[in-house]
Design a protein around this nucleic acid. Structure first.
Lengths: 341, 341
DNA sequence: TGCTAGCACTCAAATAAACCGAGTGCCAAA
DNA sequence: TTTGGCACTCGGTTTATTTGAGTGCTAGCA
């Protein structure tokens, strides 16, 4: 069943108002501030109808109405990206004047600027490593007896692991090992390493060095298990919103923010092709605290995603602004990554 | 002026009590729960004396007393490490059963366990890089035209930077460059790099490759500026304490926790030879939010510090427990690092 | 038929008043 | 010097009262 035009206008205005004030909205207020062409009595009738349709809730008989989750869903489904203010744009861009030094760097800057501009808590989740492709592996001898394992994937360089090697390993041996490492492990995705069994693939010539290969494989597997980078920013800002004046609510929210694993799940939206994803309240998500909404977006160049970003805040969040800011940042990152190439 | 024995006992009991209840302590309560040998009237007289000496404060005429900062200082100066409970010990040790994979790993696990066992917000700050010694520098050719800059210090390996090199660079040239890099920059502390001027040191032979040296120096300087790793855990736990039922207090606290730079200053105690450092309220520190205390400790093996850890919480924190837990963790880490060798 | 002005009714929130009791200070006696 | 006793204080809680924003409904008008 579809809403009459007037009902839509009224509902939209009411949500718009509620997003700003967090107070039940009265018929009179809607009339005065949004729709002066109808009397408050008329609006009252419509409100009453909208309530019985499940869009509105009345905290008690003689109060205004507040939007239900259904109303917010209606609201965001109508949303369009709106232009940002000059100040907001310059605030965003000021964070990206320096050269990008790494993907982590991008993500942490995005988190900062998102929190700053939207005034909500921002989250940035890097993509997990399992799906990256290993492009190059190389042992670099550091001193007699140990070497650094250098792994280059399509998105990262890993250089955190040092292994023991035979003291008498010659340059030539090393070269040989390096060749074999690349033959064995590239180009492969990290996730594919699960199934490799070294016994099958090492020929006799390499048997004497099998420890090296085992060590490297172990490291590759460790790297692939490495937890995703998860950055949050501006958690304390949540306390500026009246719905979190209640200590218990605030605590629940902050605990969610601290549980990085759950957060990651919340923000790593399954790949539904959409660039933007809005979750309102407990609609479907278990891990979302009651009364919270989440807006997420992918960042990256074309197919080549580097992670997800977004904000988490009260259901009554300023979706318009958040969506617009995410849109702007997304495009900006895309441009920056393009220039990097 | 020194306190009489009885005054000490009373003051100590009062602080002990206040740490648990966060409520003004009455003479009667001290008598009943700590010192049944004196009447409440006697204790009242002593309390009155202690108040005029600045150790106690009375929120209003007909209430019990709360300890002043001076009283807490008295209290912690008497503090001894007390044995932990079996549960606490096993909680701590359960976090350190896996092999240590990196210093960051140690720090983040310490932060976790500290927050868990003390129920306060924990902070772990890695030592800043400037004072590390560069032991080895090496360019590793990745593909034609670019190379990874590998820097090994006495505590870390840095491998996050890739530079352009001439496409026609031969193995031999690279070798030569590597030798020179080590001649120029090792063994030096990062901080010493400020003063180096390349023009002075490059001979004619290397002039053609001067870009490489400049790039490497730039990277070295970048690395030395790299911000310290700062990890916090359990921030939401602060809301469990009644002094943070006030939203404004809570917000102030959380904002402090989010300002990693200030936090780092707070926890990187200047090297005064002490292993443990307790800062109570605003005693001297500007950056400490009002009503907060900080207990910090160094972690590391002998002289070889890897960072500082500690907790931040209400002035009325359970110093006894915090100190004991820090002591235990410190010793545990020392043992683990020793085994690593 | 649809809109609106008017009015009685509701109820949360703000304000005021009354009460309670934990705790102190002080005095006089042991 | 210590202690029992007692009057006094004052924050916190409970109860009563007031206020006003907001609704639902009805009757009249276009």
């Amino acid at each position: 069943m579809t809403l009459s035009d007037r009902k839509k206008k009224i509902l939209y205005s009411l949500v718009d108002d509620y997003i700003v004030t967090a107070e039940p909205v009265s018929s009179k207020k809607i009339q005065e501030e949004h729709l002066p062409d109808y009397s408050s009595a008329t609006i009252r009738n419509e409100l009453s109808a909208l309530e019985s349709m499940g869009y509105l809730v009345q905290p008690h008989t003689s109060s205004g109405r507040i939007p239900s989750q259904k109303a917010f869903r209606f609201y965001v489904d109508q949303l369009m990206v709106t232009p940002l203010s000059r100040d907001e744009i310059s605030a965003i861009e000021s964070h990206f004047t320096d050269k990008i030094s790494s993907m982590q760097d991008v993500m942490s800057r995005v988190a900062e600027v998102l929190a700053e501009v939207t005034h909500y808590t921002s989250v940035a989740v890097g993509d997990s490593i399992g799906k990256e492709t290993i492009n190059k592996i190389r042992l670099v001898q550091l001193t007699q007896g140990n070497a650094l394992v250098l792994i280059v994937s399509d998105r990262n360089v890993f250089k955190d692991h040092i292994i023991d090697v035979p003291v008498n390993l010659s340059e030539k041996d090393l070269e040989n090992v390096n060749n074999w490492l690349n033959k064995l492990f590239t180009p492969k995705k990290f996730d594919e390493l699960k199934d490799i069994d070294l016994v099958d693939v090492l020929n006799d010539e390499l048997k004497s060095l099998h420890e090296i290969f085992e060590d490297v494989l172990k490291i590759l597997r460790e790297v692939s298990m490495k937890k995703q980078e998860i950055i949050t920013q501006g958690a304390s800002q949540i306390l500026d919103y009246p719905e979190y004046n209640d200590i218990d609510n605030a605590k629940q929210f902050l605990q969610t923010i601290e549980q990085k694993q759950k957060l990651a799940k919340l923000f790593s939206t399954e790949d539904n092709g959409l660039e933007l994803n809005i979750k309102i309240g407990r609609e479907e998500e278990q891990d979302l605290p009651d009364g919270c909404s989440v807006v997420t977006a992918k960042v990256g160049l074309n197919q080549n995603s580097i992670g997800n970003i977004g904000v988490i805040g009260p259901v009554r969040m300023d979706y318009k602004k958040v969506v617009s800011v995410l849109d702007h940042i997304g495009k900006l990152i895309e441009k920056l990554l393009n220039e990097e190439e």
